[in-house]
Simulated scan of single mutants.
Amino acid sequence: MRLTRFDPDNIRVTGGSSGGFPGGGGGKLGCGTLVIALIGALVFGIDPGQMIGTLQGVQQQTSAPSPQTDAKSEEQLCSANAYALESCNALDSLNLTWQPLFEQARIAFDQPTLHFYSGGTTSGCGAAESAMGPFYCPPDQGIYIDTSFYDQLDKQLGAKGDFARYYVIAHEYGHHVQSLLGLNAKVRKEQEQNPSQANALQVRMELQADCYAGVWAGKHRDLIEPGDMEEGLTAASAIGDDTLMKNAGQSVNPESFTHGSSAERMRWLKRGLETGNEDACDTFT
C-alpha cells in the first residue's frame, strides 16, 4: 500500500522505556488488552488464564496511569526503524480518514496516541509485555506496540508484507473508533451483566475492528497494490482463534473464542475492503 510519509503535526507518538515494568499503571484492561493477551498466550505458548490473572493482579497493585515516555520527537520516534515509519505513516492516514467522518456526524473526535515500547511498558490499562502483542487501551486512548511483533507476524505466523502490518495498526485504530462512539463502554456493561455472553460480545467487537480496518483501506483503493488484499487476508486468517488454537496444539473450542475464527476475520476484513463503508460493519445485528 503506497502510503505517503507522515506529517509530524498530524500524529501523536510517544516512546516508552524498554524492558521490565517500570512504574505502575491503573485502570481496567481495555478491549484490546485482554483479548490480545489471549492471542499472545496462544502464539507464544503461555497459559491464557495465567497471563490474564497476572495482568489483573498487577493492576490491583497499581494506581494512577503513568505511561513511560521520553522527550524524543515524533520525527525521531517514527524514524527509528522501518516498522516504526510504516506505523506512523498508517497512523497519519488513519487520522485523515476517520476524523472527517466524525466531524460530518458531529461526534467529538480525539486522535489516539501511538506508543512504541520494547519488552514491557505501562499504560492506562496497566502493565503490558511484548508477548501480549499490539493492543488498544481505552482509558488513555493509546495504541501500544512493540514493533518486534512484526517479525513474529512474518516468521511465526506466515503473515508477510506491509499490508499485513498496516492491518494490525488499522485494527487497533478500529477499537479507538469504537471507544469514541461509546460502543466499548456499552459492550463492557453488557458483559458485566451477562457474563455468559462476554466472549461472544468480544468476538463481535473484534470482527467489527477488522471490518473498520478494511474500510480504511477500502477508502484508499488508489493506494492499494497487487497482493495487498491477499496479505491482509492471510494475516486475518493467521490470527483467527481456531488457527491459533490448532497451532498451539489445543482443541478448537468456539465458546472460548475472543476474536473470531479465521474465516470470520477474513470475511469481515474483506467486507470492509470491498465496501469502504463503515455502515457495513455492524457485527451486532
Rank of each mutant, 00 (worst) to 15 (best):
M1T: 00
M1Y: 13
R2K: 12
R2I: 08
L3M: 00
T4D: 14
N10Q: 14
I11E: 04
T14A: 12
S17Q: 15
S18V: 10
S18W: 09
G20Y: 03
G23F: 08
G24T: 14
G27C: 09
G32S: 03
L34H: 02
I36L: 13
A37S: 11
A37Q: 09
L38M: 12
A41M: 12
V43H: 06
D47C: 01
P48E: 02
G49K: 06
M51Y: 04
M51G: 04
T54E: 09
Q68I: 07
D70S: 08
D70N: 15
D70C: 04
K72C: 05
K72T: 11
S73A: 01
S73H: 08
S73Y: 04
S73G: 09
A80V: 07
A82S: 14
S87K: 01
C88M: 13
C88G: 09
L91W: 00
S93P: 03
N95D: 06
L96C: 05
T97L: 06
L101A: 08
L101C: 02
F109M: 05
P112A: 00
F116D: 03
Y117D: 08
T122I: 13
G124V: 07
C125N: 00
C125P: 13
E129T: 12
A131S: 11
C137M: 00
Q141H: 14
G142I: 02
Y144G: 08
D146W: 10
F149L: 13
D154K: 15
K160N: 11
K160H: 15
K160C: 00
G161A: 06
F163H: 11
A164Q: 13
V168C: 04
A170Q: 01
H171D: 12
H175D: 03
V177G: 05
Q178I: 05
L181H: 00
G182W: 04
A185W: 04
V187G: 02
R188S: 13
K189G: 14
K189P: 00
Q191N: 12
P195E: 06
S196F: 10
S196L: 15
A198S: 15
A198L: 05
A198I: 06
N199L: 07
A200Y: 03
L201T: 01
V203E: 08
M205S: 08
A209G: 12
A213R: 00
A217W: 11
G218R: 08
H220S: 07
R221Y: 11
L223K: 15
D228E: 09
S237L: 02
K246H: 07
G249F: 03
V252S: 06
F257R: 02
G260Y: 02
G260W: 02
S262F: 09
A263W: 12
M266V: 14
L269D: 11
K270Y: 03
K270C: 10
R271N: 10
R271A: 02
N277A: 11
D279N: 07
C281S: 05
C281F: 01
C281N: 03
T283S: 01
T283R: 05
F284N: 05
